[in-house]
Design a binder for these strands. Structure first.
Lengths: 213, 213
DNA sequence: TGCAAGTTTGCAGACAGTGCAAGAATGCAA
DNA sequence: TTGCATTCTTGCACTGTCTGCAAACTTGCA
């Protein structure tokens, strides 16, 4: 998990380099010729590996394009969220998710190429979301903890906790998608984590004061 | 659209019958042997058509499994929602979506087979959601109308309307997913449209009275 | 009855993806 | 440095998806 890439043996470094070469070749080719007109053979040729090796790194052409799912932020950040207990369940979620996506920022070049593609090909965006299933479930567990922390009575009704945490997770992912599309629309700077906070803030504004129009 | 299936010419009826035969064969085989162990050749053999014909009806093995996206409910229902103007934007949405999914209820046999599969194979569920992209955009336009009806001032800021309607659409789809998983969990009766209303009601309960704990 | 339009099918072929086994590179310890 | 275990790369054969094309067939309609 999140190994320090600087020094980890030749083998590890080579593997990382190959991985990046494949992603780079794939993203570049698709940006240039369009998703349908790029084959694994071609990607492999550019990345200078055999087509067979491509599939040692990625399970499909698409998975080389969409990137990995984020990881949950460190335990302290999670604890802070779980025991925040001021404002609604959603209030801290934007920050939490922002922290989670922060980790991806290291490879800006790939990040921007990918942003363009995910915007151009909604199918790829959908695949990326699908790839976050595990992350989604982890987040749901965190939310369940928060629900019980907010209202200890709930602990006696695990089914309700499950149902509510699911609903909130789905809604939070909705806000995340929104943040992502705003971020992708906006050619300029603005980091994703900021957009995330904005989207959650807007969600709060739309929902909570529904009567105080 | 939504042609009356009863009488529409032999050609049309045959086409519909073939389509159903394929879906039925596909769903049955997958339920019996598992998604990976079923091939298009096999489906075609059971449906009594050539493999080539399979692809005249569906663009992929999966699309024969997931079913079509719903259509927007009739104009009156939409108008009623747009001009409801009591309660939050979400309040009428559950009913609206319930109406939209109501149309699918005609083929119960396929519906139940499909429910089981979408639950067992989350990838298929994800594909179904992806197939609803067009529906999602239509819904967003309805929501945009409602936003402007609620607050005419907004009409002067189309960007804000776009952003908000997107956010609300994403959140609504989150609630829809929640409704769907509850419905699929629950072996018993309960129609999807009822679950939808429940999920939206719960969403309202969680969000609006966040202060009135 | 006969023609136009739509449907089915077989065939050839591009491409995705997997299992296997041989060979090359790396890590490690003597 | 050498030798051995481990891991990575590659070629090959094979299964399966999906498309284009053209020939045969079916239905709609005059």
């Amino acid at each position: 998990m999140a190994v320090d890439h600087a020094q980890a043996g030749l083998r590890e470094r080579k593997r990382l380099a190959t991985r990046r070469a494949i992603e780079f070749a794939a993203l570049g080719l698709v940006a240039e010729k369009g998703l349908e007109r790029v084959t694994v053979d071609e990607i492999s040729r550019i990345a200078d590996i055999s087509p067979r090796t491509f599939f040692n790194y990625f399970t499909s052409k698409e998975s080389a394009l969409v990137g990995d799912a984020p990881e949950l932020p460190p335990a302290e950040a999670i604890d802070a969220y779980v025991h925040y207990s001021a404002g609604s369940v959603f209030d801290g979620l934007g920050t939490l998710l922002a922290d989670a996506t922060e980790g991806e920022s290291h490879d800006t070049e790939l990040l921007l190429l990918r942003r363009g593609l995910l915007k151009e090909y909604p199918q790829l965006f959908a695949m990326r979301m699908t790839a976050m299933r595990a992350f989604e479930e982890q987040l749901r567990e965190v939310i369940a903890l928060r629900l019980v922390a907010d209202d200890p009575h709930l602990a006696s009704d695990p089914k309700l906790v499950l149902s509510r945490s699911r609903l909130i997770t789905h809604v939070a992912f909705g806000a995340m998608k929104h943040a992502w599309s705003c971020w992708a629309d906006n050619e300029g700077g603005v980091v994703l984590s900021e957009r995330l906070k904005d989207s959650f803030a807007e969600l709060g504004r739309i929902l909570a004061p529904a009567h105080a129009t």
